[in-house]
Simulated assay, not measured.
Amino acid sequence: MPKLEQFEIKKYWQIFSGLKPIENKVNHDQVLPILYNSKLDSSVLNKIWFLADIDEDDNLDFEEFVICMRLIFDMVNKNISSVPDELPDWLVPGSKVKLIKERKKREQIENADLPPKKEIKVDWYMSPEDLDQYEKIYSSCVKLTDGTITFNELSTKLSTKFFNISKTDLNKVWSLINPQNLPSVDRDPTFYFIHCLRQRNDLNAEIPASLPNSLAEICNKKQVNYNLELSQPSAKKKDPVRGVDNVHDNVVDSNADNISNNAFTDDNSIKQKYATLTDEQVVNVREQLEGLMQYKKNEETQGGSNRSKNVNINSIIDDLDNMEQQVELLESYLSNKRHELQSLQAEIS
């Protein structure tokens, strides 16, 4: 690590003066843009701030600011691979030597009295106060058209609130609450994501390797995607929405083969496809199909929107006809099942 040069000090003074210090000091908010522009992990930046703030007043005078800037530039330029645990003697200003010695002595006394560290586990219970706080964060995030939030949006938002979490922490917790590796998550996984990282930030809690079973079921639930921009390959054309088959597969069998466009007009094929459905599953599929139909109708009526300009009207009409036929067949199938049930009940009685 090369020692300080005079030109460096002049450069740091220009930056320091540009921050408009008050009584020759700048606070954390004033320095924050410089910290974020460095692209260093928040855990690294927090350690640099701690080392630079020798008098521990949460402000930096010019001498402390020079320490902060030098450590940041050394990390960015890879002159050092990690932030040192203690400041090298050549980087300590003469006016701060006494404070450094007092800090070391105080830390030695405090560490001697501390009991052995215990591993802190994440408590997954969320109080009403927690939920209110997480709801505010969730509401402030930019969401996709289906109401879900991406990793980049969440990590950017939380990095400004939790300064003791690293990129590694963010990635670990994202994988934890998003086991299906989806590009975005909805409300419940978002809350668990924030809740876990908050305890990591505040309590240094260990990130667990897996979720409790009850939470795993919530985070593993599959979502029906209504995004018009997604396409599905078919024998004749590409459907601008996820096909009806995908809805069925999510409810009944994720490994079932996709139904081709020809199957939409083949009553026998459709009946065979849904032969194993229970009454409750038929109702669920029908509700989802009707939801898709309503969504498509809404898109069709919004002729002035930007999205409708990119959608083929004929394709929408075809899709609506196909889904209406699906609903009719499902209703017919459900009616037959009910008649069979009534017959069986009559024979039993």
Rank of each mutant, 00 (worst) to 15 (best):
P84N: 04
E86S: 15
E86Y: 07
D89K: 14
D89A: 13
L91D: 05
L91E: 00
V92E: 03
V92P: 01
G94P: 13
G94K: 13
G94M: 15
S95A: 11
S95Q: 14
K98N: 07
L99N: 13
I100V: 13
I100R: 08
E102T: 07
R103I: 05
K104V: 03
K104D: 10
R106E: 11
Q108T: 14
Q108K: 08
I109R: 15
N111G: 07
A112R: 10
A112N: 11
D113R: 06
D113P: 11
D113A: 12
L114Y: 05
L114N: 09
P116S: 13
K117L: 14
K121L: 10
V122R: 00
D123S: 07
D123H: 04
W124M: 12
M126A: 03
S127L: 01
P128F: 02
E129P: 03
L131I: 06
D132H: 12
Y134D: 03
E135I: 10
E135S: 13
K136A: 09
I137M: 04
I137C: 03
Y138F: 07
S139D: 14
S140V: 06
C141F: 02
C141K: 09
K143I: 02
L144P: 09
L144D: 11
L144M: 08
T145V: 14
D146E: 07
D146N: 10
D146H: 04
G147M: 00
G147I: 00
T148P: 06
I149P: 01
F151K: 08
N152S: 14
N152T: 15
L154P: 00
K157F: 13
K157I: 04
L158P: 00
S159Q: 05
S159V: 02
T160I: 12
K161R: 13
F162R: 00
F162H: 00
F163L: 13
I165T: 01
S166F: 01
T168W: 15
L170K: 13
L170A: 12
N171D: 14
N171M: 06
V173N: 03
V173C: 00
V173E: 01
S175D: 15
L176C: 02
L176A: 01
L176H: 05
L176V: 01
L176I: 02
N178C: 00
N178D: 05
N178S: 03
P179A: 02
P179C: 00
N181W: 10
L182G: 08
P183A: 05
S184D: 13
S184M: 01
D186R: 12
D186T: 10
D186G: 08
